[in-house]
Simulated scan of single mutants.
Amino acid sequence: MRTVITWQWVFIHLQCFLIGSLVDSSSLSSATNFLSVTSTVGNQVVLPCSWKPRLGEVAPSACHIQWTTLADTVFEQRGGRKWQAEEFEGRVEVPEEKLGSGDCSLIIRDVQIGDTGRYESFMVVDGVRSTKMKVFIQSVKLSVFDHKSRQSQAPGEDLVLDLHTRHSVRVIFQSRNSSVSTDLWMRGDENSLRLEENQVKEQLTIKNLRRSDEGTYKVLDERGLVISTVQLSVEDGSTALKVHQFMEKEITGDAAESSCSALLVLFGLVLSFQFSHLL
């Protein structure tokens, strides 16, 4: 009987150790340099980064910065030499004049839905025996949302659809009384009597609205991802444009943190079960 109780206490101590380890790892994961940035399509975002907390006040002899996603390298810069991933070509930058003072923030212009994800920055520094070593600096979660609006106009007025970005290539329309979407506009189409594209402002104007124009308009990118959704009502006597912008709520939390919480609950239940058998 004494041997059984001894092993039970050993098992309990082991559980306590594991729970403590999980709590510590959870605290460490929440305390790491993890930031969240949100935006809507077409805007410019800044993914914050500072190498000084990791490397000290003295700048490396040649600042060599890398920004990566889980899948690939996004941007790399060493002195005046720069490299950008194809899908980010002409849209990403780390200002060289700020890099030497510690600011390694990544600027992404004309941000797209497909840019959503986690980004990590590294400084490449000299290691032992002339080798190079990557030092982790910052992790940033970027969430990009589409634009949503509702508009009400009178027959005969014009509807101006914001395309928001040069990556918008298609507009589809679904009538209020239909479940089928039809192509309304494709980039490169010539202007017509009722459709006019403004390439400078990235806008599409639908002229002389009719009752049949009432419905949902969606702006899509090259991948078919939704950039903008506009729900239009055409009402008699309406002279003012009513616009209501909606932003989707960011889903907070990571799968890893959820798993850690689940493990804590599981060990807590097992621990309670063991105590009940000892009493």
Rank of each mutant, 00 (worst) to 15 (best):
W67D: 02
V41C: 08
L99N: 05
V45I: 09
Q153N: 13
F34A: 14
A256S: 13
H13N: 14
S261L: 15
D24Y: 15
F17N: 10
K52D: 03
N198C: 00
G100P: 04
Q84N: 09
H147R: 13
V160S: 12
E57K: 12
S259G: 13
S143P: 06
E97C: 03
H147Y: 10
E87Y: 03
W51R: 07
T69P: 02
E222M: 09
S178H: 08
H244P: 04
K134M: 10
Q66E: 12
L47M: 08
T40D: 08
Q84F: 01
V135A: 08
L241R: 13
M247E: 02
V270P: 06
P95L: 12
E197W: 02
Q274R: 15
D110F: 07
G127D: 07
N43H: 11
G79W: 02
T40E: 13
K242W: 04
D72N: 10
S121N: 03
E235Y: 06
V4W: 06
G224Q: 04
V74D: 02
V265R: 09
D254P: 05
S258A: 15
W9K: 15
S228L: 07
Q44P: 02
S105Q: 11
T6A: 11
D110K: 11
I5A: 10
A154V: 06
K218F: 00
N43V: 03
I65N: 05
S276A: 14
F11V: 09
T182L: 13
R194W: 07
G42V: 08
G80W: 04
L263F: 14
K141H: 13
P53E: 02
D24M: 12
E202N: 10
D24I: 15
K218A: 06
P60S: 05
E222W: 06
A71T: 11
L266V: 13
V23C: 11
T182V: 14
R109Q: 15
L163E: 00
E57Y: 07
Q274P: 05
I5R: 13
G117S: 01
Q199P: 05
T3L: 11
L278R: 11
G268E: 03
F75M: 06
Q84A: 14
V243M: 08
V92I: 12
S36C: 12
T216P: 00
D236W: 05
K132T: 13
S178N: 09
V92C: 01
Q153D: 07
I65T: 14
T40K: 14
S258N: 07
Q8F: 11
V46N: 12
V41M: 04
V169Y: 05
N198V: 03
K132N: 09
I251F: 00
K201D: 09
E120C: 15
I251S: 07
P155G: 13
L195Q: 01
N43K: 15
W9S: 01
V171R: 01
D126C: 03
T252D: 11
L193Y: 04
V140S: 10
S212P: 01
S152R: 12
S181K: 10
D158R: 07
G90P: 08
V23G: 04
L225T: 04
G114W: 05
E157A: 15
T216S: 04
F136N: 09
R54L: 11
G224I: 01
S258T: 15
V111L: 04
L47S: 08
